[in-house]
Design a protein around this nucleic acid. Structure first.
Lengths: 149, 149
DNA sequence: TATTGTTATACTCTATAACTATA
DNA sequence: TATAGTTATAGAGTATAACAATA
């Protein structure tokens, strides 16, 4: 059980903070080159590999935003020709969202730029750090699900 | 040199993505309880341990936002009584930002909640993972600085 | 001229509440 | 009644361009 004065905990908290701040600065630096904002990418990303079109609520939940926010965002993305919105024939309450070719390209492009930045990070790690990194990030992701807030 | 098909790289990219998404969901869940938004905390955090008052541009740079954005945000925070803005006597172009008692409490409170969440993550790691985690996060933070975007 | 900060302007992201249409 | 989505409303965060004051 780690205590508040545990030096290992202290190192963890400091490193976590450094990491989050560095990631934010990098994101800001990268943003001007992207067609999509991060929020838009997060909203559309699930459509990239979806065989079927998805509903608005599904996208909103995956992106962690409310349904009205998703509606708003999709309005703009539809006007820009990146996504299509069709009434579902089976259940006429629902809409089916799908990427257009341009939308698919924008999402793929964002994904590739993001992956490229992350590959560059990976390349700077020592071999033993590389092995540890995937494990640590994966375990932290799991741990988040077991935390209230 | 890692290649695009390197399985270790693939695991890293997948874990990175899982981590970022989990962190975002956790942040959203935690947000309603905070007096400050994350952006506001990022802007004010440097004032927490600053002996001297800091200038607006300094805060903006540290938070990764433009000067007009910082002005806007500080307007609101000043109205809420969390921060004071004084013209600097030495250089009358500059302003000196300082936390009020209420502001100091809000920043400390946000910091404590954030640290508590992170302590809970740390507690879920195995002993060997704890040792690795600080190292990995710290090295990734360093690596970000060596990446263009 | 260069720097510090603000104003003007415009757009995106965000939520809650209230609504419509369908099931 | 419950669910899918939208509209109404309001507020925060964001940037660029143009400006004022001071150095």
């Amino acid at each position: 059980m780690p205590t508040a004065t545990d030096p290992q905990l202290h190192a963890f908290l400091a490193a976590f903070d450094d990491f989050v701040r560095a990631a934010k600065r990098a994101r800001v630096r990268a943003a001007p080159d992207d067609t999509l904002t991060l929020a838009q990418y997060d909203l559309l990303a699930p459509l990239r590999h979806a065989g079927d079109a998805l509903g608005l609520r599904e996208l909103a939940r995956a992106a962690g935003v409310s349904a009205p926010t998703a509606t708003r965002m999709l309005d703009g993305l539809q006007v820009r020709g990146l996504v299509t919105r069709e009434r579902c024939t089976d259940d006429r309450r629902a809409v089916r969202l799908e990427l257009t070719d341009a939308g698919r390209e924008a999402v793929a492009d964002f994904h590739e730029r993001q992956a490229e930045r992350r590959r560059a990070l990976f390349a700077q790690l020592e071999p033993d750090e590389r092995r540890a990194a995937a494990r640590v990030l994966s375990r932290l992701a799991e741990a988040y699900e077991g935390v209230q807030g």
